[in-house]
């Protein structure tokens, strides 16, 4: 038996079926086929599944799908609009801030949440804010530079 949940995903109304032990991550990836949100650990320790839920940055692996009734959920798939990349997406490309790219969706969502709340972070603030997003390829240097490049 599954439960029907109504939520908003990337600004579109959305309905999905889930079980009580299903996570938001599972629903996004398997029910809604939004595989841009990645699973790296399942325990909230890597940040690869970062999404913005009701304006707050969360790990989708630590949210139950049944909690998401009426929630506003934003994933990497909704970051660009009308074929125009978000300035963070462009900055990540221009700064070569990704190597393998698996952490990139989570880092983009984390960076967006940062700039939404603190439009002018310094390097230290950026580093602490994205500390929940592991990247094993880049050593973070170019990621931090990309975010700094988007500071208004």
């Amino acid at each position: 038996m599954t439960i029907s949940i109504h939520a908003s995903v990337n600004g579109e109304p959305c309905q999905f079926q889930c079980g009580t032990t299903d996570t938001l991550l599972k629903v996004l990836r398997e029910n809604l086929q939004l595989t841009g949100t990645k699973q790296g650990c399942g325990t909230g320790d890597c940040g690869a599944c970062s999404v913005i839920m009701n304006g707050e940055l969360v790990c989708a692996c630590l949210v139950l799908a049944v909690e998401c009734g009426q929630a506003d959920i934003r994933t990497v798939e909704g970051l660009s609009s009308a074929g125009q990349l978000h300035s963070l997406q462009q900055a990540f490309l221009d700064n070569a801030a990704l190597q393998c790219g698996i952490c990139t969706p989570g880092l983009l969502m984390a960076s967006k949440a940062l700039l939404d709340k603190h439009p002018q972070p310094d390097e230290t603030q950026i580093r602490y804010w994205i500390a929940g997003n592991l990247c094993r390829c880049t050593g973070y240097d170019k990621i931090v530079r990309a975010i700094m490049g988007c500071v208004s």
Partner: peptide, 9 residues
């Protein structure tokens, strides 16, 4: 406690 993501929850 934890990251920004954890702090949200």
């Amino acid at each position: 406690i934890g990251s920004v993501q954890i702090q949200s929850r």
